[in-house]
Computed example of a mutant assay.
Amino acid sequence: MGDVAVGARSEQGGPEEEPVGAAGGTEPAGKAEQAEKTGKAKKKAGQQRPFWKELPLLVVVALVLALLIKTFLVQAFSIPSDSMQDTLQRGDRVLVDKLTPWFGSEPERGEVIVFHDPGTWLRDEPTPEPNMVQKALSFIGLMPSANEKDLIKRVIGVAGDTVECKGTGPLKVNGKPLQEPYVFPGNTPCSLAPEGQFKVTVPKDRLWVMGDHRQNSADSRFHQDEPGNGFVPVGNVVGRAIVVAWPIDRWATLPVPDTFDQKGIDKAAATAPTAVAFVGAVPLVLLRRRVAVRRAERRG
């Protein structure tokens, strides 16, 4: 006999039962309800929540991000004086890089830096009392802090450097006269004031800083008789000013000028190759002498 077809009678004589869900069959009531519930759940999940319900979460996330950026990345500061003209004008807003110091980077010559008052530089400067809105905005970094006593100057000398001013200049670092195109027009690189005539060597972990408006900047020169002798501790540095962000028509980056690429400024860099060459040459000379002695002995 041939094969039994699907749906034919079984050997017992009754029709074979068709599979559940096959053509012509019906789904159980429980599964139909479950499918309906699943469809409603998917539809509900696909619906977006109203914006007003999402807004508080967005605000919280934005505030947290702003606080993290202020703490670890960049912070805005306002320029309160004319001491850095023409590079920076009173009222400019600068963004300060706070990230690189976390990786052990220290300020270099020519950088414009923001630093906490070493102790007495701003003792006679009044501290304005901000309102609640200003306090909140400064806390998250959207406004400069009014309570912190910070200054902004250009790094002229780092640890080990000898910085010197005689007469009206030029300013010298490690005996090398500097070409300073950033000095305020009409100013001389050195001031004839008693404080403006100096020769100092920067100690370890300290900086010598000066303003670009040389005749209108109470910088390291004017604090030599105070604790710290006018030097700024590296630990007081908040970060490097990298860009003028406001007003828009003043937008500009703040790169390190070519001034500090002049040959001869870095004594260590200038003398190190000679020292290394000398140390490396000694073994070669001794080896050559030994070879010459052996050859002489063989000939004898």
Results as ranks from 00 to 15, higher is better:
residue 4 V to N: 06
residue 4 V to R: 10
residue 7 G to V: 08
residue 8 A to I: 10
residue 10 S to E: 06
residue 12 Q to R: 12
residue 12 Q to I: 04
residue 14 G to Q: 08
residue 14 G to F: 07
residue 16 E to A: 08
residue 18 E to P: 07
residue 19 P to I: 09
residue 20 V to H: 13
residue 21 G to Q: 12
residue 21 G to N: 14
residue 23 A to Y: 13
residue 32 A to P: 05
residue 33 E to N: 11
residue 35 A to T: 14
residue 44 K to R: 06
residue 44 K to Q: 08
residue 47 Q to D: 07
residue 48 Q to V: 14
residue 48 Q to D: 14
residue 50 P to C: 05
residue 59 V to C: 12
residue 68 L to G: 06
residue 68 L to I: 08
residue 71 T to G: 03
residue 71 T to E: 00
residue 72 F to R: 02
residue 73 L to V: 13
residue 79 I to V: 08
residue 80 P to N: 08
residue 85 Q to F: 03
residue 87 T to P: 00
residue 87 T to E: 04
residue 91 G to P: 04
residue 92 D to N: 15
residue 93 R to A: 14
residue 98 K to W: 08
residue 101 P to A: 09
residue 102 W to N: 12
residue 103 F to N: 09
residue 105 S to L: 11
residue 105 S to R: 12
residue 120 T to N: 12
residue 120 T to Q: 10
residue 122 L to V: 02
residue 124 D to F: 04
residue 126 P to L: 03
residue 128 P to L: 06
residue 129 E to M: 14
residue 129 E to Q: 14
residue 130 P to G: 06
residue 133 V to K: 14
residue 139 F to M: 11
residue 144 P to R: 00
residue 149 K to W: 00
residue 150 D to W: 06
residue 156 I to P: 03
residue 158 V to R: 00
residue 161 D to M: 03
residue 163 V to T: 05
residue 164 E to S: 13
residue 165 C to D: 00
residue 167 G to E: 08
residue 170 P to A: 01
residue 176 K to N: 10
residue 176 K to D: 07
residue 178 L to I: 02
residue 179 Q to T: 12
residue 180 E to Q: 12
residue 182 Y to Q: 02
residue 185 P to R: 01
residue 187 N to I: 00
residue 190 C to I: 09
residue 196 G to H: 01
residue 197 Q to D: 01
residue 197 Q to V: 01
residue 197 Q to K: 01
residue 200 V to D: 09
residue 203 P to A: 05
residue 204 K to D: 15
residue 207 L to R: 00
residue 208 W to I: 02
residue 211 G to V: 02
residue 214 R to H: 06
residue 215 Q to I: 06
residue 225 D to H: 12
residue 225 D to P: 04
residue 227 P to R: 02
residue 230 G to M: 05
residue 231 F to I: 14
residue 236 N to W: 02
residue 249 D to W: 15
residue 268 A to G: 05
residue 270 A to C: 02
residue 271 T to V: 09
residue 271 T to W: 11
residue 279 V to R: 00
residue 281 A to M: 15
residue 291 V to D: 05
residue 292 A to S: 12
residue 294 R to S: 09
residue 294 R to Q: 10
